[in-house]
Design a protein around this nucleic acid. Structure first.
Lengths: 195, 195
DNA sequence: ACCCCGGGTCAACGGCTGTTGACGTAGGAT
DNA sequence: ATCCTACGTCAACAGCCGTTGACCCGGGGT
């Protein structure tokens, strides 16, 4: 019971190092995916020894789990006029992705068949997207699932083509162009009758 | 000038081995991506020595280039009624992807930041999709590029969610459901006026 | 003053990778 | 029957990787 233990969230000297490692890890995972990003490279970026990464995070997988935690911060859809849902969602997410590329890291890793990352990806879209959209459809969860699935194909298609593959015509679009084009698509997937 | 040289395409004894290697390579690349698929594993699948892979294909990259060569076999769009373009394209590609997962291998590799594969991916969509759609827009290549880009976000989004991430609601859809839902989307991206 | 402990470094391990060159060996042409 | 060529194997290389344990140092508690 020393004085340093008075508060369990006492700032430690190592906190800044930990943060530096996490920052470097995010960048590397984004740029090179899970397998491509090496602990040695991450440690070099953070100007410390690779062994420190292991000391603080235990393993590469645990480091990734912390670096790739992700919150879509979806708004409350029930507060949005029903006929503006599509535009709102596209605008919100595009704004998020333009400044925060964590989702790109997650996608890269999920696609290179790291099963843990693929499962995490499914979690995000199940828990956050489905949970967010669920309210819109009341009891009809089957319908909510299908509609959420349709929406996700368009949204992840954007992430893939714009941020990962960097297809020139897609990378050149202005954010508001996505809103104008994909907003109606998302709107239709959410609110149209079954075809 | 022996009798075996009478024809330059003479079948060699090694042809079946080469084919076995290519088959195994395709499967491994599809299942595990470029970096995840090892030459040793591919060779084991083909029941031969890893050195044979090098002898016949020179390097892992060249093997991948051959295994991942891909032809979308797009139909002639000018022969399709203009208001059925979206449905035709979606139906055609979905039929292709349901039976041939080569594109999935390519996507996996492109996403795990193997620059050669990403470039090949851009080539496919530039040369095949753009070339196919180009005729529809006459001289207006800028417009053709943008429209092709929009279409690709939806189509690759399907590939990603259904075959790579295997999001349950998307994997559960029937092919004709994609046609019914995404057909109009593609149709709009191709033929709608600028928003 | 001493001691102790957390932050940090260093070298090494075992395992995996793509790639190589030397070494057999079977099978068709002569 | 012989010879040559193409098919195939084997062992090893050099270079990465994640991970580990021994070691060093400096600053705060007693």
């Amino acid at each position: 019971m020393t004085s340093t233990d008075q508060t369990p969230t006492r700032r430690r000297r190592s906190d800044s190092t930990k943060a530096a490692i996490l920052d470097a890890a995010r960048e590397r995972f984004i740029a090179e995916g899970y397998e491509g990003a090496t602990i040695r490279a991450i440690a070099a970026d953070a100007h410390i020894d690779p062994a420190m990464v292991m000391r603080y995070f235990g393993s590469k997988e645990k480091l990734f789990a912390l670096a790739a935690s992700y919150d879509l911060r979806l708004p409350d859809f029930t507060a949005i006029p029903r006929d503006e849902l599509g535009e709102s969602i596209v605008r919100h997410l595009l704004g998020l992705w333009e400044s925060d590329r964590t989702l790109v890291a997650l996608l890269r890793t999920a696609v290179s068949s790291e099963e843990a990352a693929a499962a995490r990806m499914r979690e995000i879209w199940a828990e956050q997207v489905l949970a967010g959209l669920g309210r819109l459809f009341g009891e009809d969860t089957a319908r909510a699932e299908k509609r959420a699935g349709l929406v996700v194909t368009q949204l992840l298609g954007i992430v893939l083509c714009r941020y990962v593959l960097r297809l020139p015509p897609v990378a050149a679009l202005e954010p508001e162009e996505f809103v104008a084009w994909m907003g109606p698509t998302v709107q239709r997937y959410l609110t149209a009758e079954e075809p």
